[in-house]
Amino acid sequence: MEVRTIKVFTTVDNINLHTQVVDMSMTYGQQFGPTYLDGADVTKIKPHNSHEGKTFYVLPNDDTLRVEAFEYYHTTDPSFLGRYMSALNHTKKWKYPQVNGLTSIKWADNNCYLATALLTLQQIELKFNPPALQDAYYRARAGEAANFCALILAYCNKTVGELGDVRETMSYLFQHANLDSCKRVLNVVCKTCGQQQTTLKGVEAVMYMGTLSYEQFKKGVQIPCTCGKQATKYLVQQESPFVMMSAPPAQYELKHGTFTCASEYTGNYQCGHYKHITSKETLYCIDGALLTKSSEYKGPITDVFYKENSYTTTIK
């Protein structure tokens, strides 16, 4: 009895394709271990004539594949690729409408935090270190965002349907971005203890939790000093293409032309909904596939993004 075979390709990165001759009487799992086709788990399936010449994702289970996976995804987590594939199996079914010149995501599976993050990423200057993220990001900007969303979920250790947080998501993504040249110098002034300067680099240099107003941050924000008295913390120097200011959701007025974009969060910790506000020729609110415009805006804002380049204080 002759062994019926077909020729397929296996890959971990969709760049390096490895030619395989597979036995049609055995499952993919018996031949390769966990195997995925377009995100779908085909591990328990036997090869079919229609699979001839198709590319299958496999887990990096030998040295060659491990090197290829690390170079593309910059992670050695053995569960990463499987999590990416199972997320992709959902995100490829989502709709990605162009809204006001940006790629958004039609609401499904509690994905409003991903839509808000995706919209924000198209408006701030950011370059990702893992080629996987950078490639998928370019495709997302062009309207094909399924891979990018699935990668975000995998890097953030999230599953489809789980509630997510924009600030946490951005923080994970910033860790995989090139923020080497970003720098922030802060000064804390206390009447009792004097003053202390701190220099922050990388992710810490672009994120701040405690106030939404970048102007206020430049002037000074009140913080408790270690001595128990009130101290003032203010920005001395900022070198970065953008800054992200966050605070627990509270009524906040966004003035046209003073910011790049913002995240609105309605609801409580267990259950809520994100919308995205962007400042173009007027203010726009993007909620999944829905767009509304207004000249002014007041609502429960939790993150505001500002364009920056270089700032030095005039406070002496």
Rank of each mutant, 00 (worst) to 15 (best):
A40D: 14
M209T: 12
S104K: 01
G53K: 13
K307H: 14
I286M: 01
T312F: 14
C261Y: 03
I277Y: 07
S79Y: 07
R139P: 04
K233C: 11
H176D: 01
T226D: 12
S279M: 05
A40V: 12
T5I: 11
T76Y: 09
G267E: 15
S246A: 04
A177L: 06
R141G: 06
Y113Q: 06
E281H: 03
I152K: 01
D63H: 10
K7N: 14
Q122N: 00
G29T: 01
A145W: 08
K298Y: 14
N157I: 01
L291R: 07
H90P: 00
T103H: 05
L283S: 05
R83T: 03
V12W: 05
T75P: 01
A40S: 11
L283T: 07
A87R: 02
Y96C: 00
Q216D: 15
L291Y: 13
T91S: 02
Q98C: 13
L119T: 01
Q270R: 11
D303G: 03
T43Y: 08
L102Y: 08
L151H: 05
I105D: 04
V236Y: 09
T35Q: 01
G288M: 02
G33K: 01
T169W: 02
C149A: 06
K93A: 09
F217P: 03
Q31V: 07
Q122S: 01
Q195V: 13
K7D: 14
H273G: 06
D62T: 13
P60L: 06
N14C: 09
I286P: 07
P131G: 03
T76G: 10
K93L: 12
T10N: 08
A108Y: 06
T76S: 14
L37S: 13
F259E: 06
K201M: 15
A108G: 04
T211M: 14
Q30G: 08
G220I: 01
Y113L: 00
K280H: 10
V206L: 09
M207L: 03
G257S: 09
A40I: 09
N49V: 14
N49R: 14
Y306G: 06
Q123Y: 02
N100Y: 08
H256W: 08
F70D: 12
V243E: 07
T91E: 01
H51W: 02
I152G: 03
A140D: 01
T199R: 10
P241V: 01
I315P: 15
N147T: 12
Y72W: 11
P248R: 09
L121H: 03
Y113F: 09
C190S: 02
Y57G: 02
V3P: 10
F174R: 01
H176K: 11
R167E: 02
C112F: 05
K106T: 13
D62W: 02
A231S: 07
R167D: 06
E168S: 13
Y252T: 11
T266A: 09
Q31Y: 13
T64R: 12
Q251S: 09
H48C: 15
K293Y: 08
K46W: 15
I45A: 13
N49A: 15
H48G: 10
P249W: 00
V42D: 00
V188R: 07
K54L: 14
P131A: 02
L133M: 05
C227G: 01
E253K: 11
T5F: 15
T75G: 00
F9S: 08
G143W: 00
D23L: 11
L283C: 09
A150C: 03
I277R: 05
C225N: 03
E308I: 14
Q197A: 11
D287W: 00
K183P: 02
L88G: 00
T10S: 10
Y72K: 14
P241M: 07
F148A: 00
L65T: 10
T192C: 14
G299V: 05
Y297E: 04
S25N: 07
C156H: 02
C261W: 00
L291A: 14
Y28R: 00
D180A: 11
T292S: 11
N309Q: 14
Y57P: 01
T314C: 10
V203D: 01
Y36M: 05
R83P: 01
D13L: 03
Y84F: 12
D13F: 02
V189Q: 14
T75S: 13
A140M: 11
L186T: 11
L283K: 05
L121A: 07
V8G: 03
G202F: 01
Y274T: 05
Q222T: 12
N61G: 13
K280M: 13
H51D: 12
E253R: 11
G29D: 10
C261V: 05
Q230S: 12
N110G: 03
N89Q: 15
N268A: 15
A205Q: 02
R184Q: 08
T159C: 14
M245Q: 05
V22G: 05
N14A: 10
A132R: 03
K229C: 11
D109A: 09
D303W: 01
A108N: 07
Y36E: 00
V22I: 14
D109Y: 03
V12T: 13
V160E: 01
T27R: 08
A146Q: 07
L212P: 06
E239F: 08
T91C: 09
M244E: 06
Q196K: 14
E308T: 08
V221M: 09
L121G: 03
Y311H: 12
Y155E: 00
F259P: 04
Q216K: 09
A289E: 14
V236L: 13
V99D: 00
Y311M: 08
Y208W: 11
T302P: 05
Y28P: 00
S181W: 13
T120F: 07
S240W: 01
